[in-house]
Computed example of a mutant assay.
Amino acid sequence: MNVHHDPFADLPPADDMPPDDRFGPPHNPFLEDAVPRASRFFPASEWSGKPVPPREWLVRDLVPSRTVTLLGGDGGTGKSLLALQLAYAVATGGAWLGRGVAGGGALFISAEDDEAELHRRLADVVQSSGGSFDDLDRLTLRSFAGEDALLAMLDRSGGVLLASALFHEIEKRIAEENPALVVLDTLADLFPGNENDRAQARQFVGLLRGLAIKHECALLLLSHPSLSGLNSGSGTSGSTAWNNSVRSRLYLERVIQDGYEANPDARLLSTKKANYGRNGGEISVTWQGGVFVADAPETGLDRMAAGAKAERVFLKLLAAFTAQGRRVNGNGGPTYAPKMFADSAEAEGVTKRAFKAAMDALYNKGKIRNETTGPASRPVTYLCMGDA
């Protein structure tokens, strides 16, 4: 008599078995053991008669408190130094790029630079300000160069980010010191997932934003742009969720026009996103003596003088090119006047952008005009002096 043997009879109870896809979805303790949320729902009428809380800033219009700001920049541009200068200003109650900052403690965490490099950079910052290392008891540094610096880990499904042991260590330090600013340098060393994955990007920023809200601090996260973000000037990298998830995004870049960098020490800090302020703001800075210094703001008279010079040089070059039989046009292409003039040895330092603004102004004043020649099938339009 044949007796059927159950192949599963000798297996241990299901609760003692490891997860196996053959027997259904894997056991996920992160979901099953989760603590129920204690959400607070309330009617908006609860705010009746209460004052509207003011917006809290670390640096007004640039770095808001209680949230995450993303500071991007290509490698070697100087974003780590700029962030270190901000941490120094917060810890000493000073100014950053000529702007006031909220005073308090600062925690600077670097996964790129070792302690010796941080020491050298901070020494330049201290010297430039006329201060002393004795004044920096509220600035805490930690280098993870050469160490595991991941602030999160992926669960077994590979889709959920969980805070790492290092994350909890840093949060404990934040709770102890109560800093006004936490700097994390850089995203590539701290994030364990795929930067093109929208869900993972949002989860990671959510973890950091939770820190900022809970401990009432500004969190500055440094990042590198992708090649396309670098070439386009957007400064982005990976999923659009990085830009969408943060409340503020700044970008530090070199000043390059038409492939030429006139001043290797010049940088431009621009506001690419500002949920609580105005987009498009720009701060020109120059590297001097180991630190970045804000350039003197251009006055209305400065702009008028620069515009007048650009118009004068434009007319001078147009006359010279016309006398040489070299036609230029105002519409683009190989003979585009602003480009041709900017490339001339007689440009007197006027840029292509300035020549474009001058050309528009001269059109409006009637000092230049378009002339068209040639057959109707192939007309040629070029610039010539106007009648004004």
Rank of each mutant, 00 (worst) to 15 (best):
N2T: 13
N2G: 02
H4Q: 14
H4C: 07
H5K: 15
D6Q: 09
D10K: 13
P13R: 11
D15G: 00
D20Y: 02
R22P: 01
R22H: 09
P25W: 03
P26C: 02
F42K: 11
W47T: 05
G49E: 06
P51M: 04
R55V: 12
L62N: 03
T67A: 04
K79I: 12
S80P: 04
S80T: 15
L81R: 09
L84M: 14
L86D: 01
Y88L: 08
R99K: 03
A102W: 08
G104K: 06
E112R: 09
A116L: 04
A116I: 01
R120P: 00
R120T: 07
D124G: 02
D124I: 00
S132Q: 08
T140W: 12
G146R: 11
R156I: 03
G158R: 01
G159Y: 06
L162Q: 09
E171G: 00
E171T: 00
R173Y: 01
A175H: 05
A199K: 14
G210Y: 13
A212L: 02
H215D: 05
E216H: 14
S223L: 10
L227Q: 14
S228Q: 07
N231F: 12
T236M: 08
S239P: 09
T240L: 04
N244P: 01
S245L: 01
R249A: 01
L250M: 07
I256M: 03
A262N: 11
L269V: 06
T271I: 10
Y276F: 15
Y276G: 02
V285C: 10
F292D: 07
V293C: 11
A296C: 06
E298S: 14
A308I: 07
F321Q: 12
T322F: 01
R327G: 02
G349T: 06
A354G: 11
P375M: 05
V380S: 14
V380M: 13
